[in-house]
Amino acid sequence: MTAPGDFPRRSFVARKLDEAGAGFGSLGDAAVALDFGDSAAEAETARRLGLADLSPLPRTGFKGAGAVEWLAGQGVEVPAESNRAARQSGGELAARLAPGEVLVLGAPEAEADGLPAALEAAWAAEPLPPGTPRGFPLPRRDSHAWFLVSGSEAAAMFAKLCGVDLRPDKFPNLSIAQTSVARVSAIVVRDDRGGTLAYHLLTDSASAEYLWDCLLDAMVEFEGRPVGLAAVRALGDG
């Protein structure tokens, strides 16, 4: 039996996941909730309304003068406008949070470190001080919890928690809203998975357990439930 405590890294909501009966597996150095006992049923739940914890997955950020240009030089497709995201060839997302700031989210389908770790290593491998400005790294794996809210009822659920109109016809795929969700600052990135409406939700890791409970409470009337990473991956398969 794999337990989150067996790994160097575990989710900010690992205790909540454990209480909910999660089955954990390894993802690099981290324990990740793969399912809650029935991944086939969870895949169905994820199409209606599911909440998955992606906090153990790799992610990073870069900010400051020259950061966007440096990322482009590394082969990352960075959106021209702020508050838009672009999908990369490996399924990762580059989310432009401001003219000089990009958040890189690893792909839920990927097994381990992937693009975020490769970019961090590439940045660190270049000499300091930089010959040309390349911004500075902004690690996001410890600062932010990362959830995925998916399913046809997701926008209706968000309407109870968030002032920004996230309905699919008002908030196009790969749009970003940096706003307040359930009274805590959050980054919302719409990223439909295999035709199912889905939103990444990143928030201060210190608020992770609070927001996890808030979301589950708001999901009750839609019969939404926690789902594991296996169900998220199944969405991506279509």
């Binding site: 508050n83 002032g163 920004v164 307040s180």
Partner: peptide
């Protein structure tokens, strides 16, 4: 709710500012 138009993020509730 009073609305503030943010140059980066667009119109938002004043409570976010």
């Amino acid at each position: 709710m009073k609305i503030m138009p943010c140059p980066l993020n667009g119109p938002r509730n004043i409570s976010e500012f």
